[in-house]
Amino acid sequence: MIATTRTKADAALVAAVEVARAALVADVDPTSVGEHLGFEAEGDRVGSHLFACEAKGYHGWRWSVTVTRAPRQKPTVAEVVLIPGVESIVAPQWVPYRERIRPGDLSPGDLLPVDEDDPRLVPTYSFGDDPLDADAKAQVRQVAQDLGLGRIRTLSPEGIESAAQRWYDGEPGPESPLAQAAPANCFSCGFLLRIAGSLSETFGVCANGDANDDGRVVAFGHGCGAHSEVKLTKKQQPPPLPEPVVDTLRDDLEAL
C-alpha cells in the first residue's frame, strides 16, 4: 500500500483493506466494487481506501472508504462515498444563471432584472445623506418620475468603460476580420452617424443599410467593404458588354 499524501500513514489503517471492502459491499452493489487501488492518509489515524468502481456509466470513478481508529483501538469505517478520478466524466462547473446570459439569449417577453447595486449604474439624482431602506428609495424614485426628472439611473464611469472595452474588443472594433480586410475605416465613411457623450470620440453608429453593421455601434477604426468611398479597380469591375449583333437574314426584323 502506498500513501499518496505527506501525512504519515497509520499501519493499522493501511492494513484494514478487508474491513473497508466489507463495509463497502454491505452498502453498495457488490458487483460494482472492483480491485483495491490504494490508501490515502488524510490525517492522524484517518485515511481512505480506494476501490475501482465497476458500475456502468462510471468509468474512472472510485469508491472511497474512510477508516479511522482511536489510540490502541481497531479500525472502524467512518464514511463510504463515490468520487471521480482523473478519467471520470463529470458535470462542468456550475455557473450562475445571471453570468450565463449572452447577447441574443432574450426572447420576446423575457425579463432580465438589474441588481440594485449594479456597479455599471449610478442614480441620476441623489437620495440625500440619510440612509434609506428599499421602500423609501422606491418612493423617492416615484416622486422623481412624477416630476419628470428623467431616467432613474444612468451609466457609471465603470459601466461606460466596460461597454467601450467590450465594443472595441469585439466585432465592432478595429481588430475584427471584417475590419482588417476593409479598404478604409468607419471614421472616413459617409454613412457613420456621430453620437454624443463621452464615447463620441471613439464610436459612432453605422447607417448603411447594405452593411453588416447597419444600426450598430462601430469603432472609428472599424471598417467593411461597404465604405461610402470604396471604388472598384479595373480588374474588379465587370467586363463591358459586347456590341449587339444585328441579324440581317431575317425579314421580320423590320416589324420589330
Score class of each variant (00 low, 15 high):
Glu161Met: 04
Trp167Asn: 05
Glu158Phe: 09
Arg166Ser: 11
Ile152Asn: 14
Gly148Arg: 09
Glu175Arg: 10
Ala181Phe: 06
Gln145Asp: 13
Cys189Thr: 05
Ala182Val: 04
Pro172Ser: 02
Ile152Val: 10
Ala196Tyr: 11
Ala211Gly: 10
Ala179Asn: 01
Asp213His: 12
Asp213Glu: 08
Tyr168Pro: 00
Cys189Glu: 09
Leu155Met: 12
Leu178Cys: 02
Val205His: 04
Ala219Thr: 07
Asp214Leu: 02
Gly190Met: 07
Ala179Phe: 01
Ala181Val: 06
Val217Trp: 14
Glu158Met: 12
Gln180Glu: 07
Ala182Phe: 03
Ser188Thr: 09
Gly209Leu: 09
Pro174His: 06
Ser176Cys: 08
Arg141Pro: 00
Arg216Gln: 12
Arg153Leu: 02
Ile152Lys: 10
Gly209Lys: 13
Asn212Cys: 00
Gly150Glu: 09
Ala211Gln: 07
Gly197Ile: 04
Cys206Ile: 07
Asp169Phe: 02
Ser188Cys: 03
Ile152Gln: 14
Tyr168Asn: 06
Ala163Ser: 09
Ala219Cys: 10
Asn212Arg: 14
Pro172Ile: 03
Glu175His: 07
Ala184Ser: 11
Gln165His: 08
Glu158Asn: 10
Asp169Arg: 12
Pro183Phe: 01
Phe191Glu: 11
Ala211Asn: 09
Phe220Ile: 01
Leu149Gly: 00
Pro177Gly: 01
Tyr168Thr: 01
Glu158His: 12
Gln165Val: 05
Asp146Ser: 12
Gly215Val: 02
Arg151Glu: 15
Arg151Lys: 13
Leu199Arg: 11
Leu178Asp: 10
Leu155Ile: 02
Ser176Met: 04
Asp213Val: 01
Leu149Arg: 15
Glu158Pro: 02
Thr154Lys: 15
Ala179Tyr: 02
Tyr168Arg: 08
Cys206Pro: 08
Ala207Cys: 03
Glu175Leu: 07
Pro177Lys: 03
Ala144His: 15
Leu199Gln: 13
Gly159Gln: 12
Ala219Gly: 14
Asp146Pro: 00
Ile152Glu: 15
Asp213Met: 14
Gly148Lys: 08
Gln165Trp: 03
Ser188Trp: 05
Val143Gln: 15
Gly150Ile: 07
Asp169Gln: 11
Asn212Phe: 13
Leu155Gly: 10
Ala164Ser: 09
Ile152Pro: 00
Val217Phe: 15
Phe220Asp: 09
Gln180Asn: 01
Phe203Gly: 04
Pro172Gly: 03
Ser162Arg: 15
Ser198Thr: 14
